[in-house]
Nucleic acid binder design. Structure first.
Lengths: 344, 344
DNA sequence: TCCATTTGTGTCAGCGCTGTCAATTATTAC
DNA sequence: GTAATAATTGACAGCGCTGACACAAATGGA
């Protein structure tokens, strides 16, 4: 019961191996009768084309590489981020008979460029998905560019290169969240900024300012603190913000982890959320639903974005669809327990 | 600046391509001088062997497949579980120049067997890592067995097959946790059991009983409730347990998510943790540190286990080390904020 | 009717590498 | 010094598949 090869199928179906190849790959110009016989033989022998042989002969690997920053460098929470990316990419792979190779790496390592180049050159994936925050690092983009392998950037903040890009409408959504908070009657809405390297997170700050303006509130530096995406930094920022004599009645953090930190501090200080303080985050990380009170947040459609990215790469490798421009996905405002009307 | 092949290297070094192959693969019986010349040429041309060609010729793919149950079927929290598995496996891959292919699947799907078989037959990984709860499902084990690809089972509860297995000492560790709770003075220690399909989780129940016995406490059915690994089920169990007239002073849940559910309910009922109720979990999921109070739990060395699994497979594929028996990893008891002395 | 297409199928070289085995040279034992 | 052995290298045939091309048969338009 050893593996059957294309040769066995050809013999059984009474055709040449090339014809089998045609049928298996759905190439045109094969008569209905032949197709049928070949398919029957394939089924009977349980034939599965060998990936390596195929890849060697065709120069296509049917492999997509997903590259992201290793979450263990920070804290494990970003697991949710990674998993959702993977899920989306896997969805596309499954539909198209590709496999997904994952390759976390440490963006601070000075050798990442070489590492990724080697990866790409030995594996020869049909495409590479580059997740934030790697997707806007020049050295990394350059390293991948020189290999000539097509790639898609996920959530790069600035559009520096002209490669295909998928991202969330960070600015508009953050403005929406801010307007939502304002609509609850909040006048002093504070903001906790994110990691300066993570551009997408930075853009949310601009959205926050848009939202204030659109709601007729004026921006104040005293209502802004700088975090670094970690829970701990969220706590630190909250401590400062909540120590102000004119305490904010709402705090909007550029990501969920920091928002969770804010809630922890409020809890510790005996400030009721959402009674005395509304807290909102961004990303809808798993944590957001697990903490108490559950976090009002913006759900970044990460899986959909990754799926789009993978699909674009696969299409590109198979039918040479162009790979440029940008796809924007709208975030969804999820109102949960952590926000409520402003206190009198 | 196109890719250089083994032929280019051979020409440059003035040897046959076979000799280059020898050097690149670290085969014995190559003179020091030759090795040096070849290595120099490799560096100069920036030569990287092509994975597909290699795999086709050698019948080794340098690919390890990690198969696990798709967390999205349940809830996202198991993201931490998956990520840690991936991290461990990736560590081994990185050391040995392999790549990792991930393949989540739904164990309830009746076609998983076929799906995995196809995966293995087309990709031909050098080995497969099968994570719990897939690692103890007969249909899945059978499907993989017939392909002849070596595999390792992670955390299978019962040792039904004789394949190599890595697991945590669930029973001993659970007993340890129980003894720890008893040592704090708790007399009524309740237990929340896990998903019946997840054997490893089941074994913890036995450990709990061992622990009670070793601490001179007697087991009572009234202190046990059956959950299904989810936060929600933990909440349901806690509601029942805490409604007893003789309320337990400690609750030990077979996993962290359920323990988190217990804490939520206690919070809701105004029961102070750990003042009036100690809560302990198992797994040290990310969530464990994020909730308040942070959860006392058992840290399953998942990454180490996966790394060992991957390493065993790679060794096996390269030097034919046998692949049988079982490696057990000790869990670590992490005392955090959710446990304390029994109330008077 | 005849030639120009189109359609269906096969032949063959080779993708880039490794396994086998044979050939050559260096080393050791006597 | 010679035979036997070991160390070192290369020639060559594929691994299982696809791309380029050749060819025969069917189709169509004048």
């Amino acid at each position: 019961m050893s593996r059957s090869t294309i040769f066995d199928v050809a013999s059984l179906a009474g055709v040449s191996i090339k014809t089998v190849s045609r049928v298996v790959n759905g190439e045109p110009n094969v008569s209905a009768g032949t197709t049928e016989r070949v398919e029957k033989a394939v089924k009977e022998l349980n034939y599965r084309p060998d990936r390596s042989a195929r890849s060697l002969a065709s120069h296509r690997s049917n492999l997509i590489a997903l590259i992201y920053d290793d979450p263990s460098v920070y804290e494990i929470p970003s697991a949710g981020y990674v998993i959702r990316l993977q899920q989306g990419a896997l969805r596309a792979c499954r539909k198209t008979n590709c496999e997904l190779l994952i390759h976390p790496c440490n963006y601070q390592d000075e050798h990442v460029g070489t590492e990724l180049k080697t990866l790409i050159e030995t594996v020869r994936p049909d495409g590479v998905i580059l997740a934030a925050p790697l997707s806007n690092m020049r050295n990394i983009l350059r390293a991948i560019s020189v290999t000539g392998t097509p790639f898609v950037r996920v959530s790069p903040g600035k559009k520096v290169f002209k490669e295909f890009t998928v991202s969330m409408n960070d600015r508009e959504s953050s403005a929406e969240m801010t307007r939502y908070l304002a609509s609850l009657g909040h006048k002093r809405i504070a903001f906790v900024t994110g990691h300066p390297k993570h551009d997408a997170v930075q853009i949310r700050f601009a959205g926050y300012q848009d939202g204030l303006r659109e709601s007729g509130l004026k921006f104040s530096e005293r209502l802004v603190e700088a975090g670094d995406n970690s829970i701990r930094s969220g706590e630190a920022c909250a401590e400062k913000l909540l120590a102000r004599k004119q305490r904010p009645t709402a705090i909007f953090a550029a990501n969920d982890d920091m928002a969770a930190g804010v809630i922890r501090v409020a809890d510790r200080l005996g400030i009721d959320v959402p009674g005395e303080l509304s807290v909102a985050g961004c990303d809808d990380v798993a944590l957001a639903q697990q903490i108490y009170p559950a976090l009002t947040t913006l759900r970044q459609p990460l899986a959909a974005m990754a799926e789009r990215a993978a699909m674009a790469l696969i299409d590109h490798s198979r039918v040479a669809t162009p790979l440029r421009g940008a796809d924007t996905f709208a975030a969804k405002l999820l109102v949960r327990e952590s926000t409520g009307p402003a206190p009198d």
